[in-house]
């Protein structure tokens, strides 16, 4: 079998416990070469633990995993020269300059100083850090640190790259910069496993998404497949006056088997078919004398997917910040 047909990342039944906490409870993952696998889940779902197992940092209690054709336990030493890791916290030495950080990593890969330095210069250029390259990393902004961290993961041009929440804590502008950098890498044929708490990030970057919760993969597929699992379309009506919501509900009720939801001016109806839904709703509303400012049909988002799969919304920003604080205190 040609290598290109083999999976770049595959894991079956990974189990890992820390004392009483079962961080991984049978995780299965698969990514074809040159694709992006998004691992999506709330805080504590087991994303980091999965990444640490796949990057040889942790030995699993059970299960098997292969990355770039090598077993993560038996071939750990060999595997390390074929993977790049950018962990959950930008792992750069703050006392070193950008170029020193990258040169150090190159030397730890076994390169001569001159070779390591040349590669460092190249990477700084690629991540728009050339100007800052001579300054200690402690003077960098969050976005610059992340880019330097990503550059460090790319020093050896690894065929498989692991990015653990690469944009958590970044401002929107830096997030988009980083997305573009990742997309460029994938364009060059790198396989990427990316964990995230952000649904839009998985939606934008990932070819396939594995949704994890409590150490399990609870759903896997393309973003479209996951969305269609939640079923039908959502018809959303924005009323002119929220006082009319009762009238709107009774007018629209018979369009769907599911109950109609109303929240202030917004009324949501689940419909099976897109075609004709808007016309039908408009006709019913005008017959009932209910004014509407906006009527739209939208496909379910990954937020809806998550809610219907887990029964709770993915960790919101506040919960994430709280969890990070806990980490700092602990």
């Amino acid at each position: 079998m040609a290598f290109s047909e083999e999976l770049a990342i595959s894991a079956q039944g990974l189990v890992k416990s820390f004392g009483d906490v079962r961080a991984l409870d049978g995780v299965d993952l698969a990514a074809a070469p040159g694709t992006v696998l998004g691992v999506l889940g709330p805080n504590g779902a087991g994303k980091t633990t999965s990444v640490r197992v796949l990057t040889t940092l942790l030995t699993p209690d059970g299960g098997e995993a292969r990355v770039a054709g090598l077993d993560v336990v038996k071939d750990a030493a060999k595997l390390r020269s074929r993977i790049g890791l950018a962990g959950q916290y930008a792992a750069v030495d703050e006392n070193l300059t950008g170029i020193e950080n990258l040169t150090m990593v190159g030397r730890l890969y076994g390169n001569k100083r001159a070779v390591a330095k040349r590669r460092a210069v190249e990477l700084l250029e690629r991540f728009s850090l050339t100007e800052a390259g001579g300054r200690p990393a402690k003077t960098y902004s969050g976005g610059m640190r992340r880019r330097l961290d990503l550059a460090a993961a790319l020093v050896a041009s690894p065929p498989v790259l692991f990015l653990d929440e690469p944009t958590t804590g970044l401002d929107p502008r830096s997030r988009i910069d980083l997305w573009e950098a990742i997309e460029e890498l994938v364009g060059d044929g790198t396989t990427v496993l990316l964990t995230t708490q952000y649904l839009e990030e998985a939606d934008r970057l990932a070819d396939r998404i594995a949704v994890v919760d409590h150490g399990h993969v609870i759903a896997e597929g393309t973003a479209d497949e996951l969305k269609s699992r939640v079923g039908g379309m959502r018809l959303e009506v924005t009323l002119t006056h929220c006082a009319a919501s009762f009238a709107a509900i009774s007018a629209l009720e018979s369009m769907s088997e599911e109950p109609v939801h109303a929240d202030g001016e917004l009324v949501v109806v689940q419909v099976a078919e897109r075609s004709g839904a808007i016309m039908e709703a408009a006709r019913r509303l005008s017959q009932a004398g209910v004014g509407a400012d906006d009527i739209a049909v939208r496909r379910p988002t990954l937020d809806d997917v998550f809610l219907s799969l887990t029964g709770h919304a993915p960790a919101d920003e506040e919960a994430a910040v709280e969890a990070e604080l806990e980490l700092v205190v602990a």
């Binding site: 940092l57 890791l85 916290y89 930008a90 792992a91 750069v92 990593v105 460090a152």
Partner: peptide, 13 residues
């Protein structure tokens, strides 16, 4: 605390 140990461990060092 800054995750550098993880980086070093993930390298063929």
């Amino acid at each position: 605390t800054k995750g550098l140990i993880d980086r070093f461990r993930s390298l063929p060092t």
